[in-house]
Computed example of a mutant assay.
Amino acid sequence: MSAFETRLAELGVTLPNAPAPAANYVPYVQVGDLVHVSGQISTQDGAFLTGKLGDDMSADEGAAAARSCAIALLAQVKAACGGDLDRLQRVVKLVGFVNSTADFGEQSIVINGASDFMVEALGDAGRHARSAVSAASLPFGVAVEIEGIFQIK
Rank of each mutant, 00 (worst) to 15 (best):
A65M: 07
A80I: 03
S38C: 13
G62P: 04
A65V: 02
A63S: 12
A18K: 00
V37F: 02
D55T: 03
A64E: 15
V26P: 09
L49E: 13
L88R: 06
L49S: 11
Q89L: 12
G51A: 13
S38Y: 00
Y25E: 07
T50K: 00
G46D: 09
Y25W: 01
A22M: 06
R90Y: 01
H36K: 14
Q44N: 15
Y25S: 04
A75V: 12
A18E: 00
N17Q: 12
S38M: 07
V91A: 14
A47Y: 14
K93V: 00
D86E: 09
Q76K: 05
V35N: 08
N24M: 09
A23N: 11
T50Y: 03
K78Y: 01
K52R: 09
G51M: 08
V77K: 01
S68A: 15
A20Y: 01
G82K: 03
A63M: 07
P27W: 01
V92R: 11
F97L: 04
P27M: 02
S68K: 03
M57N: 04
L49D: 14
S38D: 10
A47L: 14
A22V: 00
D86K: 07
A72M: 08
V26W: 03
Q30L: 00
L53M: 12
G51L: 09
A20F: 01
V77C: 05
A23Y: 09
